[in-house]
Simulated scan of single mutants.
Amino acid sequence: PSSGKPCSCGDHNILNCENSFGATIIAEHKPVSYSEIDGRLYNEKELIFPPELALRNVLPLKLYGFGGIKWYRPQKLSALLDLMSLYPNAKLVAGNTEIGIEMNFKNAQYPILISVTHVHELNVLKIKENGLEIGSSVKLSNLQHILLKVMTERDVNETSSCRAISEQLKWFAGKQVKNVASVGGNICTASPISDLNPLWMAARAEFQIINSKGHIRTVCAKDFFLGYRKVDLAQGEILLSIFIPWSRRFEFVKEFKQSHRRED
């Protein structure tokens, strides 16, 4: 109002206040809403994710970049293994949080890049009778959600490892990073300051590894890390999945992070 006082109409459906000329304006306020399909109307402060992008069919990609770089994005494990057989020195990309730094700041050259983000078999999350199976391309944010589900549904004695990993993920980078960073990428980077790799070992986790011919072998987490940024992966092999057994009775796993600041 022109008087400078707050509007005292008090009705959320009717706007009744004075304009600068002293006239009274009465207008009906109709809140708008949106659906998950039609995002043209909304009543939230933040815009929703574009429905057209959510409904778009995801297709395999083969792109060519500057300097002869080739980028592949297969959707099936068989297609990924064929590419690994054809390009044994190809670099696998998930969240690109490590490879992007190497290419931009360390001048690393990777002529063949294969994105594994859309391979169905690598995005599996299964709650089994004896533990939890996690695909290597599962995003850290999705891992957080399944861990919370497990902790509410399973006996507390069985979820000590899950609880420790869930608590550690709270301090693992920001939400945007966790939305793209993968479980397998963090493991295979084998960073000495990894927040999760010590927990995989403490939780008696097992890693399933598959080669370009489809042969699968299992390695305990404690034996997978060979040294500084070195892991037990031969040429043409990839990390397929991670298996966490349920904690045993009187078995306790606890996370602890010591740093100048808790958040990455």
Rank of each mutant, 00 (worst) to 15 (best):
residue 214 G to L: 06
residue 200 W to M: 13
residue 143 L to A: 02
residue 210 I to Y: 05
residue 181 A to F: 11
residue 206 E to V: 12
residue 202 A to M: 15
residue 136 S to P: 00
residue 118 H to G: 00
residue 215 H to Q: 13
residue 187 I to A: 02
residue 187 I to S: 00
residue 196 L to V: 11
residue 108 A to W: 14
residue 132 L to D: 00
residue 105 F to Q: 05
residue 186 N to F: 13
residue 158 E to V: 03
residue 121 E to W: 04
residue 189 T to C: 00
residue 145 H to I: 05
residue 104 N to P: 07
residue 185 G to I: 05
residue 127 I to Q: 06
residue 170 K to V: 04
residue 217 R to N: 10
residue 123 N to R: 15
residue 128 K to H: 09
residue 116 V to L: 02
residue 138 V to R: 08
residue 110 Y to E: 11
residue 123 N to D: 15
residue 189 T to P: 02
residue 188 C to K: 00
residue 140 L to G: 04
residue 205 A to L: 07
residue 152 T to E: 13
residue 126 K to D: 11
residue 173 A to V: 08
residue 216 I to Y: 09
residue 192 P to H: 14
residue 114 I to G: 07
residue 151 M to A: 04
residue 160 S to H: 06
residue 186 N to M: 12
residue 221 A to M: 05
residue 159 T to G: 08
residue 144 Q to P: 02
residue 168 Q to T: 14
residue 182 S to A: 10
residue 95 G to Y: 09
residue 206 E to D: 14
residue 161 S to I: 14
residue 132 L to E: 03
residue 165 I to L: 14
residue 185 G to N: 01
residue 165 I to D: 10
residue 173 A to S: 13
residue 109 Q to W: 15
residue 124 V to H: 05
residue 127 I to V: 10
residue 113 L to A: 12
residue 167 E to L: 06
residue 217 R to P: 02
residue 102 E to Y: 13
residue 106 K to T: 07
residue 124 V to I: 15
residue 202 A to C: 11
residue 98 E to Y: 09
residue 196 L to P: 04
residue 206 E to H: 12
residue 189 T to L: 08
residue 181 A to P: 05
residue 106 K to V: 07
residue 96 N to S: 08
residue 138 V to K: 10
residue 93 V to S: 03
residue 148 L to S: 03
residue 127 I to Y: 05
residue 188 C to D: 01
residue 167 E to W: 03
residue 215 H to V: 07
residue 139 K to A: 10
residue 115 S to D: 14
residue 100 G to P: 12
residue 192 P to W: 14
residue 152 T to G: 13
residue 158 E to R: 06
residue 99 I to W: 11
residue 179 N to Q: 09
residue 123 N to V: 12
residue 178 K to Q: 15
residue 99 I to P: 07
residue 219 V to T: 09
residue 93 V to M: 08
residue 171 W to S: 14
residue 144 Q to D: 07
residue 175 K to Y: 09
residue 145 H to K: 11
residue 156 V to R: 01
residue 179 N to C: 04
residue 119 V to K: 03
residue 150 V to C: 07
residue 209 I to S: 02
residue 156 V to Y: 00
residue 224 F to N: 02
residue 211 N to T: 02
residue 128 K to C: 05
residue 161 S to T: 15
residue 216 I to S: 09
residue 152 T to L: 11
residue 167 E to P: 01
residue 160 S to N: 05
residue 165 I to A: 08
residue 139 K to C: 07
residue 138 V to T: 15
residue 206 E to A: 08
residue 102 E to S: 10
residue 183 V to E: 01
residue 103 M to S: 10
residue 197 N to E: 01
residue 95 G to W: 08
residue 116 V to E: 04
residue 148 L to Q: 03
residue 155 D to E: 03
residue 220 C to S: 15
residue 116 V to C: 05
residue 100 G to I: 12
residue 210 I to M: 09
